[in-house]
Every structure is written in structure tokens, then in C-alpha cells.
Design a binder for these strands. Structure first.
Length: 326
DNA sequence: TTCCAGGGGTAGA
DNA sequence: TCTACCCATGGA
């Protein structure tokens, strides 16, 4: 078939008129690259991939003009003067504005412009298992767009982690766009994360194919609101407003409740709310209540002293030993 | 087979 | 503000 021939050609090795553009961007100090990328499940949700052997974040990224590129991000430099190296594999020329877009996305994902010095100081003060976090941890991986973070967060609700991964995989497979190294074989890389426009325009069967269950209509409504301009998610990153104001807006999104709002606030760089879910309840019950299940209010009280860093205080309390479950 | 997960929407009190 | 009930899906 004609369509198949086109797809085969675009995925075959002969198409690989690929170039590699390498860029570098300064990291704050202290900064631990691997611990930043592999800080929570986002590292392995499509279109992200964590190559533990090479300690590289791999991602298929689509830019506004429609170009899709393959990114490989690694940490370089001395301990006290770290940098992030970005290798972009692409077809044709990569213009200055596209280079800037790549760097902006990676800096955003790694939170390189967040000031975590007060958090690190609090970790040193807390000592014990938090001490390690003061040496460059705390920048929990986020997505280039708030839309992607919001969709992924909705896909973490009321489902086991394997289900979340399957849903996000379904979204990229069905509605994302293949990158220069994407393919349907075992060595292929994921498609890009779908744009709001692609989700809003998806026919029912395509979206159902992602197996989002009852979350499907929530994700579609979110995409429609963003596409129509009724909701500006990206503006939430920079809005000069209280956390409570941002939280109210997040809670107005269908599919986003207290847990998802706290998770999204974390992804927006606001750490003063705890994401109370089954992981939180189980962990706090075991560590602080001798297995007894406390009321949520009592469980929250454990991290009250962390003030505006509650989420991170909890996260690095939990994180010991959790990474092998990813 | 039943239970429940990195919960949330809705109706009714 | 709180509770009860319902919600797709898939792994355990």
C-alpha cells in the first residue's frame, strides 16, 4: 500500500540523513544530574527514557513549528562546576530559535533555574536521611509543558504505576509524532508527547486506544480547553500568585483533585502541599505510626516543619529504597 | 473471583 | 464540609 511504503521509508535506516547538534548549558551548584533525572517516575514515562548504563535522559521532543527531534541529555563537568550536555539528532538544519527551544525545554525539565538553596539548608539542618539531598538533589523531573505534566498526573490517579506507564505509552503511540529514531521495533524510541491539538482532535477510537478508562474524557476536555484558549496552563509556571490561588485553578480541572493538584504544584515548583495518595499513607503509616493507619491530617502533620518544602521533605524521606520499583 | 491502585466527580446531607 | 456511591482498567 502506498501509505505503508511511506511509513517504511520514514522509519528505515536509509532515511537517516541525521545530524547531531551538541549543546551545553550551565547547571547550578550543587547539582546531581542522575539523581535529578531519576528523581521520580517521570524519568521513565514516554517519551522519556532513562539509560542507566550511560546515565542519559533520552526523549523524543516536538517543537512548535512541528519538527520532531531525538534528545540525549547527560551531565558533564567537574563536581563544583557542572554542565548539562544536550545531543540533538535531527534532520536538516537546526536553527538558532530551535536550539534555544531545546535548551529552554531541558532547563525547564531539570529545573535548573529553581533556587533550592533554602531547601538544601533545611536538609542539612534535618540531617540523617535528608543530608544526601543537600548535595544537589531536589529538582524533581518535570515536562517541557504543563499540559504534558497535567495529562500524566491525571494518568497516575487511581491506578497502579504499570497502568500509568501503559496509558502514557498509549497516548504517545496513538497521538504523538515519530521522531527521527522512533520506530515500531524493539530498538525504536517513543513518539513525541501529543500536543493539546492532537488530543482535542483525536477521534474517539484513537483516544480509547490509549486505554485511559474514565480518565479519557477528562484528558480530552483538558486538551480542548487548552486548544480553545480557555485555559492557559503554561502561564501557571510564572504567575505571581499565591499557591492557594494556583491550587484552586488546578482543582477546577476535571480529573484533578487534592492529590493531583499537589503533584502539579510540585511540578510547578511549589512544594507546600503534600500529595496524599496510597504511597504516602502506606509510607507514613509504616515509618511513623507503627503500621497503624493515621488520619490524613495526622499524617500531614509529620512534615509540618518543612514549611514551603513539605513535598520535598516527604519525598526524600520516602525515596530511600524506592528507586528499584521504577 | 475479588480487591484495589501514585483518586476524583457528583449528589445529597 | 462530609459521606456514599460510582467510575474503566488491569495487575495481584
Amino acid at each position: 500500500m502506498e501509505g505503508d511504503a511511506t511509513v517504511t521509508h520514514s522509519r528505515g535506516p536509509e532515511r537517516l540523513d541525521l545530524r547531531t547538534t551538541t549543546m551545553s548549558s550551565a547547571a547550578p551548584s550543587p547539582f546531581e544530574f542522575a539523581g535529578t533525572v531519576y528523581s521520580h517516575g517521570w524519568a521513565v514515562l514516554h517519551p522519556n527514557r532513562w539509560d542507566g548504563g550511560r546515565r542519559a535522559l533520552i526523549r523524543t521532543e516536538r517543537f512548535g513549528a512541528g519538527r520532531v527531534v531525538h534528545l540525549e541529555v547527560t551531565g558533564t563537568g567537574r563536581a563544583d562546576r557542572q554542565r548539562v550536555r544536550i545531543d540533538v539528532r535531527h534532520e536538516g538544519e537546526l536553527g538558532p530559535s530551535e536550539r534555544k527551544a531545546v535548551t529552554r525545554s531541558i532547563r525547564r525539565m531539570l529545573r535548573l533555574d529553581e533556587d533550592l538553596r533554602p531547601f538544601h539548608a533545611q536538609c542539612r539542618k534535618a540531617g540523617g536521611r535528608w543530608e544526601a539531598a543537600s548535595h544537589g538533589l531536589g529538582r524533581l523531573l518535570c515536562s517541557p509543558s504543563v499540559f504534558e505534566d497535567a495529562v500524566k498526573t491525571i494518568c497516575t490517579t487511581n491506578v497502579q504505576w504499570g497502568g500509568t506507564r501503559a496509558m502514557v505509552r498509549g497516548l504517545t503511540r496513538n497521538l504523538g509524532e515519530p521522531g527521527p529514531l522512533s520506530g515500531d521495533n524493539s530498538e525504536g524510541f517513543p513518539n513525541s508527547f501529543p500536543t493539546p491539538e492532537a488530543v482535542a482532535a483525536a477521534d474517539g477510537r484513537t483516544l480509547e486506544g490509549a486505554r485511559l478508562g474514565y480518565r479519557g474524557p477528562y484528558v480530552r476536555e483538558l486538551a480542548e480547553r487548552v486548544t480553545a484558549g480557555d485555559l492557559d496552563l503554561e502561564e501557571l509556571r510564572t504567575r505571581d500568585a499565591s499557591t492557594e490561588e494556583i491550587r484552586r485553578e488546578l482543582l477546577a480541572i476535571k480529573g484533578v483533585g487534592p492529590y493531583a493538584a499537589a503533584t502539579l504544584l510540585m511540578l510547578l515548583g511549589r512544594y507546600d502541599h503534600l500529595a496524599v495518595d496510597s504511597v504516602f499513607r502506606t509510607f507514613v503509616s509504616g515509618r511513623y505510626f507503627e503500621g497503624r493507619v493515621p488520619a490524613d491530617g495526622d499524617a500531614r502533620e509529620i512534615y509540618a516543619d518543612w514549611g514551603r518544602w513539605k513535598y520535598l521533605g516527604y519525598w526524600f524521606d520516602l525515596w530511600q529504597g524506592l528507586d528499584e520499583e521504577l
